[in-house]
Design a protein around this nucleic acid. Sequence first.
DNA 1: CGGACAGTTGAATCAAATCAACAAACGTGG
DNA 2: CCACGTTTGTTGATTTGATTCAACTGTCCG
Lengths: 225, 225
Amino acid sequence: MLQSHLLDRSESTYSALSAPDEAMPDASLRDVFLRLGGTILVERNGEIYADGEPAEHVYEVMSGVVRICSYLEDGRRQICAFHFPGDVFGFELDEVHAFSAEAVTPCKLAMARKSAFKDAASREPTLCAAMCRTVATSFAQLQAHVVLLGHKSAQQRVTAFLKALTRHHANAGVVELPMSRQDIADHLGLTIETVSRTITQLQDLGVISLEGSRKITVRRRQLAA
Amino acid sequence: MLQSHLLDRSESTYSALSAPDEAMPDASLRDVFLRLGGTILVERNGEIYADGEPAEHVYEVMSGVVRICSYLEDGRRQICAFHFPGDVFGFELDEVHAFSAEAVTPCKLAMARKSAFKDAASREPTLCAAMCRTVATSFAQLQAHVVLLGHKSAQQRVTAFLKALTRHHANAGVVELPMSRQDIADHLGLTIETVSRTITQLQDLGVISLEGSRKITVRRRQLAA
DNA sequence: CGGACAGTTGAATCAAATCAACAAACGTGG
DNA sequence: CCACGTTTGTTGATTTGATTCAACTGTCCG
């Protein structure tokens, strides 16, 4: 009852808050997914594709959250990006996936064969442009992440992360974290302990407040970049 | 062996960059540049475009080396990428450049209006595909860089960087560094001092040797990832 | 020659990692 | 429903790798 649940909660919450800004990157892309592909459901922590597998599909997140990650030899993990409803991923040019994609929460994904996409794109220039735009969007995000990882302190990383998350919430000021501390740490290039400490530190500063470990209220817009 | 497999893959990702030196990413792209645009020369440390300027052109490096960078409020700089002959840059979708591009060495660049490119692309699907591929290539490089910045030690960063540079040299084993220690530091998320120390350290280990500060001979292929 | 960079090296400091407990939340099965 | 083990998150003590501050060397070029 108390836990009635993860599943429910994430399902409803996320599809609900997919609404805001970048939920719909491109109507024409969405159409193509519906025309060319189907949808799949993936359970929490389920694998969407793995590092090394042939890369044959392109995906769009319909609900839930996806992480794109790389496993290092020593077992550590780097999460390059999280994808939220409306985001498209899996368009890497290589024949083989260089990274893995996993479901952070239960996910519903639209999925289409790359080849079908390419065919469609060669007939419809606007579609091709839409794809380019999609890739470019991810590219810009990644560039920003490089800046974050290259030169920022733990506190700056965490605040930037929280700030980015608020974009996915209609209800400004309240952020529901779909991912674990470990996920956050692996994304920000920190350790769980540092993430945890930094969050309590921000709490002490009055910048945020927690209600349970996964729900954060942002007190001030003053999240320094 | 599983190990070495992993290693190889991440390697190739990093410098899946552009192929060797003059290998052009795409003949059709090169053609379009010649058809639609002209070439420009930029002196060492010259600005190609700045952060905040309207983004109207796309470029291809014909000779020289370019850095794409971001300046933080505190004056520090993050270099997202270096571009070598054959690389295309300036594809960002935004109307305005989020990053700056500067010449590390004197450069000759092919340059074409984005709008002309788009027009051409809408008529020629293969061109559009080539553009997508180009963006995807930069994307893959950047992903690899995120992994590097997120979880690697100074030594790993420097060795990975040197290894990536060898791709641009026909004469395997000898790397001529076109950029300063400061450039390297800003790219790898380190300080000049750390880069310098790490290089001497690699020298002490017998992995590399220097002939002047800008010319490095790689002794062993044993550059661990 | 001398001044300005570019690069190296040393010593002290610090932010984040590591090592180590502990606490809280979850969920499973009696 | 509760007891119990497991996972997830927090906190503390200590270590450490990289930064910072500072001095010094080499090199290029007017």
